[in-house]
Simulated scan of single mutants.
Amino acid sequence: MQEERKEAAEPIHLAPLPMSLRWEPPPKSWSAGDGSSLTITAGSKTDLFIDPEGTAEALTAPRLLGTPQGDFIVSARVTVGFSAVYDAGVLLLWAHERAWAKLCFELSPQREPTIVSVVTRGLSDDCNAFAVGSDHVWLRVARLGRAYAFHASVDGTAWRLIRYFAFDSAGDAAVGFSAQSPTGGECTAVFEDIRFAPRRLGDIRSGE
Score class of each variant (00 low, 15 high):
M1K: 15
E4T: 12
K6T: 14
E7Y: 15
E7T: 12
A8P: 05
P11N: 07
P11C: 07
H13C: 12
L14A: 07
L14H: 04
L14N: 04
L14Y: 04
A15K: 08
P16Y: 10
L17Q: 06
P18A: 15
M19H: 07
S20H: 15
S20F: 12
S20T: 15
L21T: 01
P25H: 08
P27R: 08
W30I: 06
S31G: 10
S36H: 03
S36P: 00
S37L: 07
S37R: 11
S37M: 09
L38G: 07
T39R: 15
I40E: 12
T41A: 12
G43W: 04
I50H: 11
I50D: 09
D51L: 08
P52I: 02
E53S: 14
E57V: 03
A58F: 01
T60W: 02
T60L: 03
A61G: 03
R63K: 13
L64Q: 05
L65V: 04
G66H: 00
G66V: 00
T67W: 08
P68D: 08
P68Y: 07
Q69P: 05
I73C: 08
I73T: 08
V74P: 04
V74W: 06
V74R: 05
R77Q: 14
R77W: 07
G81D: 13
G81F: 01
A84F: 07
V85P: 04
Y86C: 02
A88C: 06
L91E: 02
L91M: 06
L91D: 02
L93N: 00
L93A: 00
A95Q: 09
A95R: 11
H96C: 08
R98V: 09
A101M: 05
L103Y: 02
C104H: 04
Q110H: 13
E112S: 04
E112H: 04
P113S: 07
T114M: 05
V116L: 15
V119F: 01
R121I: 11
G122R: 04
C127V: 14
C127T: 15
A129V: 04
A129E: 09
F130K: 06
A131R: 08
A131Y: 02
A131H: 05
A131W: 02
G133W: 05
V137K: 03
W138F: 13
L139I: 03
Y148P: 10
A152R: 00
A152W: 01
S153E: 07
S153C: 06
D155V: 11
G156D: 06
W159G: 04
W159Y: 08
R160M: 12
I162N: 07
I162M: 07
R163I: 15
R163L: 11
Y164W: 12
F165P: 11
A166N: 09
S169W: 05
A170D: 11
G171V: 05
A173K: 01
S178A: 12
S178N: 05
S178H: 04
T183A: 15
G184W: 01
G184A: 02
G185I: 05
G185A: 10
G185R: 10
T188D: 03
V190P: 04
V190W: 08
E192D: 15
E192Y: 09
E192N: 13
D193R: 10
I194L: 14
I194Y: 11
F196R: 05
A197G: 11
R205C: 13
R205P: 03
S206E: 06
